[in-house]
Design a protein around this nucleic acid. Structure first.
Length: 813
RNA sequence: GCUCGGGUGGCGAAACUGGUAAACGCAAGGGACUUAAAAUCCCUAGGGCUUUGGCCCUUGUGGGUUCGAUCCCCACCCCGAGCACCA
């Protein structure tokens, strides 16, 4: 194999610049959104335009999505691959504060850099449909979305706790609270109660859960959503108070009701004041105050001792009739269930710890194998659903599982309880007391109350104020901007005030995929015809860090929009695949770990195509890989060799005869590359192409037909390179308009196969036999083999196992 | 603590989801070409024995099922990600 050649070597810089220009000129990456016949919406999670630019981990994800889009295009689909920027939010704002540049100035600058990087890597993006969530033409519709939910009664305002840093005097997101302290200044964080806007996502909990079963999603992602939704079946039970009324609790273990020896209310529970007796008032109030000042995060960690105080009140256990003491403790959370529990210390770890610490009685009501009512409890006996009830009156002896429903029915018949379903999911708080987001389109009027901004007045523009820092009022900086803050009431015209909270970034990203196909329409968020043609998204690829919030919120928004008649579907992402992470020095790439690799220098040195191939060959796309720059020369050598092979093929006469075994390799490769690329197993698809190349070089074969197929198969991975090779093979159209190679099922198997011969499960030899040879033929061949004979040593064959075309195992003695 | 992933050569990884463990690539060693280097090309290569014919061992650890286990089952160890007092 001589690399002949008077021709030019492969120069990626030149080739890539040429094809970027030509794609732009020809509109290669711009499908006709109205006339497309086989629409395929290939979506990648849009990036947040950080000041650092895209790192290698980001480009791994973008490239993997682009490979898939280009592959689908070669399969004959009209692929729409849009891109945009998730540019609002606390990250941008905090960074802007840190370096003292206004986010309105910083973000456009970052976007320019992102655009440059994304173009350079060769993404098949349709830039005509680029969007940024910070663009008033976009957030006008984010605000519109809020109004639709508000009108439908799905948005409401209520007091809720936020994390508050008393030093920085600002509201913090949960992620900014590290071990109960502010991530920036290390000051202990407190909680503050503010009036905030919520979306009623909990109304959709059951649908969000049910639909998961029919979505083609990564199983890990679906599982994460199931866990987050947290469906529990149980009972709501009333414990009567002597003075009238009752404390209602939720439990998943009604079968342990007879073991409820005390009750605990969350400190915020509305009944606390009412039931506390005079002599306990001081202790209880002190405890409530202390709980209120604790930050939200450490409250939920649960490592500390289980503090609490007795209210002095008693309630009646509906099963035993006994009066049991009512305590308050911060291990009970107001946001879950009813904010009150029946404590069963015998069968709940937390209740056990609390009872031990405060000297409360512990009763066994479930006995496992070899235990009875009197077996002492050293710790809470939890995994007891296989056990039988004891100390439980008429239910003694029943299996715990049966007793669950039996006791629930018994309570129902006496009006003391009922079976209910609970979710962990909370309503979505969309209020942010910050500057850098879309203002929530609400006006407060003394006369008319809460008035939504009329749709004709949208967008409510985010004013460009120089001091965008949060201050110690706990209110958004927008409140300081008077000519913005005060507006005439849309209903009565009197002076009114604007809502100063902006909405959560997750709201921006919960609908951006609806906007992409319709970016040119100024008068509607998403055009009905376009939406009908392109949505739901065919394939969505993104990071598993968004497995829960972003994907769940997007699903909720689509459900709500469908219910309101705006959409024809309720699940936005037909297929979702989570990409893996790129590891460097044993850790995920992140700025805080200091192991971020900036791709620009690699691309400049090796070319985008080599870099793409390298990233895709690191490991399975859905698992990620380990970045070591040493390996990048491999893919480059591959492309160099293909380059020279294309030169040979261009000179080679068409229709050259091809040996059978090369044909087999060729067709096997087509099958493997097709299947593996479709399954996102890019690393093995690339390996298969390398094998084919090695075979062609060993056999000194430069068949035009084979090289042509190879170039098409390389195209999703190395698009500029493939275009250039395609042209050198004499084509005048884009390689992406070519047809993906098909394989002949008769040509993927050799006529003669090698069958492994094992004796007692150990490989001893291999014999060549015709394909699909029957057992007697294979056995005969094996028995003629010297090595096999040696290991058989005249012993009788007790059993033969034949795996056709693969293996024969002879079991002797 | 809980829920998902995952542990295979010097390194990244592959193995039709029970059938030749280590494909493909990187790094390495030897050779060819060259005044030289780079590039390129050819050869070697999991470990250990060896009488040079081969033989034995090897997929985190220990058991099990099977003619046969990287793959299935049980117990344990380690790494990564997410959730975290959810009653």
């Amino acid at each position: 194999m001589t690399g002949t050649s008077t021709e030019q070597g492969y120069d990626p810089t030149q080739v890539e610049a040429k094809w970027r220009a030509r794609w732009a000129e020809r509109g290669t990456n711009q499908p006709d959104l109205d006339k497309a016949e086989r629409p395929f919406y290939n979506l990648m999670m849009f990036p947040y335009p950080s000041a650092e630019g895209l790192h290698v981990g980001n480009l791994f994800a973008f490239t993997g999505s682009d490979v898939f889009g280009r592959f689908q295009r070669l399969q004959g689909h009209d692929v729409f691959e849009p891109i945009g920027f998730d540019a609002f939010g606390i990250h941008s704002e905090n960074y802007a504060i840190k370096i003292g540049v206004h986010p309105g100035e910083l973000i456009p600058r970052n976007i320019v850099n992102f655009r440059r990087q994304l173009e350079r890597i060769g993404g098949m993006f349709d830039w005509r449909h680029e969007l940024a969530t910070t663009d008033p033409a976009y957030y006008k519709w984010t605000q519109w979305l809020f109004l639709q939910l508000y009108r439908a009664g799905k948005a409401y305002k209520r007091p809720a706790a936020v994390n508050w840093c008393p030093f920085d005097k600002t509201v913090l997101a949960n992620e900014q609270v590290i071990a109960g302290r502010c991530e920036r200044c290390n000051t202990p964080v407190e909680q503050r109660i503010l009036d905030q806007w919520f979306f009623r996502i909990t109304d959709y909990a059951e649908r969000l859960l049910q639909n998961l079963d029919r979505l083609d999603w990564s199983e890990t992602t679906a599982t994460a959503q199931r866990n987050w939704l947290g469906r529990s079946e149980g009972a709501e039970i009333a414990f009567e108070l002597p003075a009238g009324g009752a404390i209602r609790v939720f439990t998943t273990r009604p079968d342990t009701l007879f073991g409820a020896t005390f009750m605990v209310l969350a400190p915020e529970h509305p009944l606390v004041r009412e039931i506390t007796t005079g002599e306990r008032r001081y202790d209880v109030e002190a405890y409530v105050r202390a709980a209120a000042s604790r930050d939200l995060v450490s409250r939920k960690i649960g490592e500390e001792d289980k503090t609490g105080v007795f209210t002095g009140a008693y309630a009646r256990n509906p099963a035993t009739g006994e009066a049991i003491p009512v305590w308050i403790a911060d291990y009970v959370l107001m946001e879950y269930g009813t904010g009150a529990i029946m404590a069963v210390p015998g069968h709940d770890e937390r209740d056990f710890a609390f009872a031990t610490l405060h000297g409360l009685p512990i009763v066994r009501v479930v006995a496992g194998a070899g235990e009875d009512a009197k077996t002492p409890l050293q710790e809470a006996y939890i995994d007891n659903i296989e056990g039988r009830l004891v100390n439980s009156g008429q239910f003694d002896g029943q299996p715990a599982l049966e007793a669950k429903s039996a006791i629930t029915r018994w309570l129902e018949s006496r009006g003391a309880g009922k079976g209910v379903v609970q979710y962990r999911l909370h309503d979505w708080c969309i209020s942010r007391q910050r500057y850098w987001g879309p203002p929530i389109p609400i006006i407060y009027c003394e006369a008319c109350g809460t008035v939504p901004v009329p749709e004709k007045d949208l967008p409510v523009l985010l004013p460009n104020i120089p001091d965008f820092r949060p201050d110690d009022t706990g209110v958004s900086p927008l409140a300081r901007h008077e000519e913005w803050y005060y507006v005439p009431c849309p209903q009565c015209g009197r002076r009114a005030r604007r809502e100063t909270d902006v909405s959560d970034t997750f709201l921006d990203s919960a609908w951006y995929f609806l906007r992409y196909p319709s970016t040119e329409f100024a008068d509607r968020p998403f055009d009905p015809a376009r939406t009908k043609k392109w949505l739901p998204v065919t394939t969505y690829i993104g990071g598993n860090e968004h497995a829960v919030l972003h994907l769940l919120y997007s699903r909720f928004i689509c459900m709500a929009l469908q219910d309101l008649g705006h959409l024809h579907f309720e699940e936005p992402f037909t297929r979702f695949r989570a990409h893996g992470l790129i590891i460097k020095d044993g850790a995920k790439m992140s700025k805080s770990k200091g192991n971020v690799v900036i791709p620009d220098d690699y691309i400049a040195k090796w070319g985008a195509d080599t870099f793409r191939m390298y990233l895709m060959s690191l490991g399975p796309f859905q698992e990620g890989g380990d970045f070591r720059d040493a390996g990048i020369s491999g893919p480059r050598r591959f492309l160099d060799k293909v380059w020279s092979l294309v030169g040979d093929a261009a000179r080679c006469a068409p229709g050259e005869e091809i040996h059978r075994h090369i044909q087999v390799k060729w067709h096997q490769t087509k099958r493997k590359v097709t299947e593996d690329t479709a399954g996102l197993k890019y690393n093995t698809a690339i390996a298969a192409m390398m094998e084919l190349l090695n075979t062609l070089r060993e056999e000194n074969c430069s068949s035009r037909e084979i090289v042509r197929d190879l170039v098409i198969m390389i195209a999703p991975f190395a698009p500029h390179f493939a275009e250039e090779c395609w042209e050198r093979l004499g084509h005048h159209t884009s390689v992406f308009d070519a047809e993906w190679p098909s394989w002949d099922p008769d040509l993927v198997v050799e006529d003669e196969v090698e069958v492994v011969v094992q004796v007692n499960g150990k490989t001893r030899s291999r014999v060549r036999v015709p394909r699909d040879a029957d057992e007697s033929t294979v056995v005969a061949a094996a028995e003629r083999d010297d090595a096999v004979q040696r290991f058989m040593a005249g012993k009788a064959v007790r059993k033969r196992v034949l795996v056709p075309n693969r293996l024969l195992n002879l079991v002797v003695q």
